[in-house]
């Protein structure tokens, strides 16, 4: 063992080529991008309960909580090459009742035309490699960890609803969507195109991404709360919600 260790130290000291080198002065100072996620319904900013909305199944609903995890941000350049934001810093919680802005710093000066990001946390990546271990306490405080499982809720969407047939009968609904062990992967990646914009040295560009809350119920799939008002570990409905969510983001031009 000692022999190998000595050998290793010797060789490792030769491999300095891939150490961080921040002395390259030819690269201009980076800029920043501020991404705000605006939750909307019917084209206007979401108002929380007691404001009510109606879904395509004629159910009236009011939202008491809306949180989701955004991750793995990559910026797309006009030539389709990408800049990957450091993965260990790339986990964000969007909370309708809290922070909705993602501040990305140290972005190389360049022209960008689009963005790819994850909904949730990619369950196939090792937590060390993907840097999620330091996100755990934060997700926990936000109630975005399952308690019985070592996994995340990607979406926490709760409120009350009433059906068209019983409008005075208010019932709570709970949509908690995440991955189910290694069995079911509800992680989604979303790619959106911007008009071209320039990240300039020591400047912050702001962009807004809209999240259409109504599409949680009505998009690829039409989901009825009357049919299922408690979706947690649900291998039928959770993937449908995740697919609907993946269509709900758009760029505010």
């Amino acid at each position: 063992m000692k022999k190998y260790f000595t050998l290793l130290v010797g060789i490792a000291s030769l491999l300095t080529a891939c150490n961080n080198d921040e002395s390259n002065t030819a690269t201009p100072d980076p800029g920043s991008l501020s991404l705000t996620f605006e939750n909307i319904v019917n084209g206007a900013s979401l108002s929380m309960s007691p404001t009510t909305y109606i879904n395509n199944t004629n159910e009236t609903y009011a939202v008491s909580e809306l949180k989701y995890i955004i991750s793995n941000i990559r910026l797309i350049k006009p030539d389709n090459s990408t800049y990957t934001y450091p993965v260990e810093d790339s986990y964000f919680l969007i909370n309708e009742d809290g922070n909705k802005t993602v501040n990305l710093s140290n972005i190389p000066v360049d022209t960008y035309a689009g963005i790819t990001f994850g909904f949730g946390v990619d369950p196939t990546q090792y937590p060390i490699e993907s840097g999620t271990l330091n996100f755990i306490p934060f997700a926990e405080e936000a109630g975005m960890l399952w308690t019985w499982s070592a996994g995340y809720k990607f979406l926490k969407f709760e409120g009350v609803y009433s059906s068209a047939t019983a409008p005075d009968d208010e019932t709570t609904f709970v949509y908690h969507v995440g991955s189910h062990g290694a069995n079911l992967d509800n992680y989604k990646e979303i790619t959106l195109s911007f008009g071209e914009f320039q990240i300039a040295s020591e400047n912050t560009i702001s962009q807004t991404i809209q999240f259409d809350v109504a599409k949680i119920f009505d998009s690829i799939y039409t989901l009825s709360l009357e049919e299922k008002n408690d979706v947690q570990v649900d291998p039928i409905n959770a993937p449908k919600i995740a697919e609907n969510v993946s269509t709900a983001f758009s760029i505010l031009e």
Binding site: E140, T147, A150
Partner: peptide, 23 residues
């Protein structure tokens, strides 16, 4: 490959979340 009786943890590094947080 997975941990606990039902496989609720898919990585050893996150398994301790379950006993730490379980009531």
């Amino acid at each position: 490959n997975e941990f606990t009786w039902d496989g609720a943890a898919t990585f050893l590094d996150t398994q301790p979340i379950i006993p730490i947080t379980s009531e």
